[in-house]
């Protein structure tokens, strides 16, 4: 991984920070000169991941969410979103479209489906009781090459 630039932020798991987090990551990604569609794909994927941390990982408590992002030499953005919340028992099941543990709150169960389809790759690792890490990557300008 040849890293041209990198950044790290951490913030409290309150819903006000959903907008803050996606804006910061998009400002960082802007260095790759993405088009409108690429930037809104990243914005949406980050929003989904951070919302998962707030709604699920830190469901009954407040915690810290950490985002680190890297710009790689092949024009790729690498985004890691990490929490130390409750973790996911069954990652495979959680990633199934429309699966949700919070239907009463009108969660559509599409978070991972959006991340998967809007980014080039998605990796989720989780340990119950320890937390979850989501890694997403997207090549910018790939469609035009």
């Amino acid at each position: 991984m040849n890293v041209k630039n990198e950044m790290k932020i951490s913030f409290k798991s309150i819903s006000e920070n959903e907008g803050f987090a996606r804006t910061v990551v998009c400002a960082f990604a802007a260095m790759l000169d993405p088009n409108m569609e690429e930037i809104s794909d990243i914005r949406t994927a980050v929003s989904e991941a951070v919302t998962n941390c707030i709604v699920h990982a830190y469901r009954n408590e407040e915690g810290i969410i950490e985002i680190s992002a890297k710009i790689l030499s092949n024009n790729e953005i690498y985004i890691k979103i990490k929490d130390k919340g409750c973790g996911i028992q069954d990652v495979k099941q959680a990633m199934e479209p429309l699966f949700t543990t919070a239907p009463c709150e009108e969660r559509a169960g599409l978070g991972f489906a959006v991340m998967e389809s809007f980014m080039d790759s998605l990796k989720v690792s989780s340990k119950p009781g320890k937390g979850t890490t989501v890694i997403m990557r997207k090549k910018i300008g790939g469609q035009n090459e």
């Binding site: 929003s47 989904e48 919302t51 009108e106 969660r107 559509a108 959006v114």
Partner: peptide
């Protein structure tokens, strides 16, 4: 802007 919360 809208994420899947809007779908919900």
């Amino acid at each position: 802007f809208m994420d899947s919360s809007g779908i919900g």
